[in-house]
């Protein structure tokens, strides 16, 4: 199915946030996730289903002031 990942359209097969992260290669890096604007804690990624058209944000540590 097609979802939006960090603003870009991506094709994913997984049915949960955790599975999508694995496909994208981000399952073992330090990131935080939000689905359709709502925070998805690490412990909830396995149980959070994704559906076509969802917006997934995957954020990582970055420089800041």
């Amino acid at each position: 199915m097609r979802i939006e990942v960090n603003g870009a359209t991506r094709e994913v097969a997984g049915a949960t946030v955790a599975e999508a992260l694995r496909e994208l290669g981000w399952d073992s890096v330090r990131v935080a996730t939000a689905l359709n604007g709502a925070f998805v804690p690490k412990g909830a990624r396995d149980a959070t289903a994704i559906t076509a058209g969802d917006r997934l944000e995957v954020l990582a540590p970055m420089q800041g002031g």
């Binding site: 960090n6 603003g7 981000w26 890096v29 330090r30 990131v31 935080a32 944000e57 995957v58 954020l59 990582a60 540590p61 970055m62 420089q63 800041g64 002031g65």
Partner: peptide, 14 residues
């Protein structure tokens, strides 16, 4: 520090 979309540089920065 801040959070931004993962683009590969975040882990080294951390």
């Amino acid at each position: 520090v801040s959070l931004r979309r993962e683009a590969g540089a975040g882990q080294a920065f951390w």
